[in-house]
Design a protein around this nucleic acid. Structure first.
Lengths: 158, 158
DNA sequence: GGAAAAACCAACTGCGTCGCTCGGATTTAA
DNA sequence: TTAAATCCGAGCGACGCAGTTGGTTTTTCC
């Protein structure tokens, strides 16, 4: 899971698409104007989204894009996975399968990154386009014993 | 919170430092050899870590680095924040303060990214170097039944 | 049939960061 | 004095990002 601004643009565009879903499909130029994203860049993003089966296209005048599924069935994690490069597998990164040489002394942090990846994916797949539109963010996890909040200072704990 | 491989290298190095902490400080060339990271690159990372007050240096032969605090008082989030660029503030990204033009229609995803940032920071600041060494990852949050319907819990933030 | 609106497609560009190298300088133990 | 180590800055090749250019195809509408 890559978490670049590219994925953010894609999610912005998809939320916009979900918001303005009508009988007629939504054209990319409309989205581009509303979200202030380059039209051609949007085209590239939506090419990937279409290949991933998240949107359907209608060509010709009056055409545009539609969500392939309902907004409450389209998860943010899917959008980001669709547009981002599948991570460059640097050294021990991710590669859930075999990788990581099993030499634990060199890869003490393996479990940490794996768990972090899980956390991120878990969160992003718990949020759908509908949730973003309705501003229903799950906001769970809020309490964890002895863990200081993000913003403020971190008094030692644990 | 940036989550690049740069931060990962820094955490790897810091875990290595914590693991081999003895009476004598640990030299970067030792860490470089064990973790297979370029020495000069390590130097750059540790320059930042030192400025952030996470490590202390000892110059001269037999010198090296020491943790400035105990390993259970050094959080992974601090390490990553120390070495990563403070994010380029693209459009509506993060910028916890004023930003984001308050034009909600253009920034429907603002709350989403903010909440995601909170999740990541919360997780990474719940893990200390000591935890990584002992492989005690908190692994909480693990519920979220199946692929969870998020709307179930919580009303919006904002 | 022709014009125009839209999706499609491919190549290229400027830029910034990453991971790293090189060439030093300073400090300090032996 | 030598050598081990931290310090420091400049530069480099590669890559992804965001965008641009310049098309083509499909399809609606007049």
């Amino acid at each position: 899971m890559k978490l670049s601004t590219k994925g953010r643009y894609a999610v912005m565009a998809m939320v916009d698409l979900a918001r303005h879903a009508q009988a007629k499909p939504v054209s990319l130029s409309d989205i581009a104007a509303r979200q202030e994203i380059s039209l051609s860049y949007l085209e590239q993003l939506f090419a990937r989204l279409r290949r991933a089966g998240l949107v359907k296209s209608v060509r010709g005048p009056g055409g545009g894009y539609r969500l392939a599924r309902l907004s409450m069935e389209t998860r943010v994690s899917e959008i980001i996975l669709a547009v981002d490069e599948p991570i460059s597998a640097t050294r021990c990164t991710e590669m859930g399968a075999t990788g990581c040489r099993a030499d634990r002394s060199k890869c003490l942090t393996h479990d940490l990154w794996e768990e972090l990846g899980n956390q991120i994916h878990l969160f992003l797949s718990s949020v759908t386009l509908h949730d973003v539109l309705e501003r229903k963010l799950t906001t769970r996890i809020t309490e964890a014993p002895g863990v200081p909040g993000p913003g403020s200072s971190m008094a030692a704990a644990s």
